[in-house]
Design a protein around this nucleic acid. Sequence first.
RNA 1: GCUGCCGUAGCUCAGUGGUAGAGCACUCCCUUGGUAAGGGAGAGGUCGGUGGUUCAAUCCCACCCGGCAGCACCA
Length: 635
Amino acid sequence: MITLPDGSRRGFPGPVTGADVAAAIGPGLAKAAIAIKLDGRPRDLASLIDHDAAVAIITREMPEGLQILRHDAAHVMAEAVKELYPETQVTFGPATETGFYYDFARAESFTPDDLAKIEERMRDIVKRDEAITREVWDRGQAVAFFQGIGERYKAEYIGEIPPDEELSVYRQGDFVDLCTGPHLPSTGRLGQAFKLMTVAGAYWRGDPRNAQLQRVYGTAWPSQKELDQYLFQLEEAERRDHRRLGRELDLFHLGEEAVGSVFWHPKGWTIYRTIEAYMRRRLDQAGYQEVKGPLLLDRSLWEATGHWENFRENMFIAESRDERVLAVKPMNCPGHVLIFKNRLRSYRELPLRLAEFGSCHRNEPSGALHGIMRVRGFTQDDAHIFCTQDQVTGEAIEFCKLLLSIYRDFGFDDVAVKFSTRPEQRMGSDVYWNLAEADLEAAVKAAGLPYTLNPGEGAFYGPKLEFVLRDALGRDWQCGTLQLDFQMPERLGATYVGEDGARHAPIMLHRAILGSMERFIGILIEHYAGHFPLWLAPQQIIIASITEEAAGYGEEVARELRAQGLRAAADAGNEKIGYKVREHSLAKVPVILAVGRREAAQRMVSVRRLGSTAQESLALADAVARLIIEASPPG
RNA sequence: GCUGCCGUAGCUCAGUGGUAGAGCACUCCCUUGGUAAGGGAGAGGUCGGUGGUUCAAUCCCACCCGGCAGCACCA
């Protein structure tokens, strides 16, 4: 008896295959079927069902089906590589979110020409429509076989598979691969909607101490249409790339003179200051107190916090004329703790929320740098909340509310939460960790936010929540964080006097909303594709005069708007209005006010919005009043 | 940091073992034009850096610096 996803049941006289079940339901499904889900687990279409079970047919359009498709694309690629370059060893080749990759071991590196050849051979293999069959081998046989054909990585890996686990091997044509599956019934079912993208290095088993393999990436989709759509999306992402827009819109630059640090240009810095002012306002309202700590702090402090031990390699060290060794601060928390413990604190002062736009420097590995998203010098919208254990939940809930509200103001409604627990390399006893993890989990539950578990990814001093927002292209970015720290205040000897007259170490919440200003602005640039909402646009309004006769009036309009706090400038240049409209539209100025002889005579402006060709004639006073309202920041 | 690829004008890119070119941008002149490029002229480069091979190197080789993609890393 077989139960289908809609709850209906079908009886079969004896054992059947997944293909039989699909055929029994209908010929259309039989044709579309590529695999089955047997009691919730994906299996080959050819797998035998010999007991009462819940069965669902998987088609290529379903998420599970797409994953199988991509996994198969990896196998077809491996087969193609083995045919073209038999000396190559295969290792792992899984599906990814947009396609697949396979890691190969080969002395020579693959060139772009090689990729084209491999892709061509893959298309052949699909045309050959080779049957893909599953076999179960015993360990000795498998190790001997893979050793015999020179596949040392595969042979090594077999030794690590738990002995009670079935060892399955898939055969397609002459290619035999160790794999748990499931797979398509034949290579022809893959279709031709795939494309090889790039080749890059990747460590065997993800460990930098191991050999580096060559990872060939590809993308694969159920149909050509979806492949084309994906490729278009990649182009769109490139058009929005913050490094490109940063240059085109003259926001910032990066240079060899300060690798990994941002040179903010006037327009970029205007965005920065606008965001900073907005955040400052929101934090003031939420009961934070802003502070500013020193950039250079003595080595002994970093030894006390544990950073010297854990992160010295990534800290910039500055030596002074005396014997002291100073480190450029990689984070702001020790400074805030020092401010906290500078005098005797009472429980009445808690929760004490110290905020700082903290300039930090971390000597990130060169390969990690990426535009202004991952830099060596950056500014965190950091704050530390010193509180009692009773206050943790309430503070966490308030923080989550504030964070979501701020994200909404920047146009991000989709926020995911990850809960990261104790990492392997950590500070402090498990007693602390048990307490901290329990408290933080209780807090996120109380805040009513759904979250996913991220085991082992916490900070070395405490567990953390990470807030991931999704941008206009559906990409995820981790920005906000909330970390619970039972250790640092105690390590640095920060205490407060409790109601009982005794001294207690406060609990410290580390938190950031934007994460880093640099990174967040990078995300915003890409999210808005450079087309910022009026309140954020560095140049909000251009007054383009049509003739020299109207230039004086244009300047007057610009002065009036600036007097009202708007970022307006007059363009009295010697160009036609069409040229000016094009120039400022490309510069993504949200509002262009055209003024000619008519407007000057009647004290009007002709309003043109970015993204529209419509023109609206307004009295100057009305236009100013309207723009003031539109340009006012949220919150 | 590792693997691979790349580095020519502000930008996008041609090009060659015999000391360099286009378009856009820039400057000036003409043009005063009504909503995405009006016309003309000019200026601009130690061909990423340092060594080497060569009669001769932007081109070939080595090292270094920087960038890109991925991996690893992200307190």
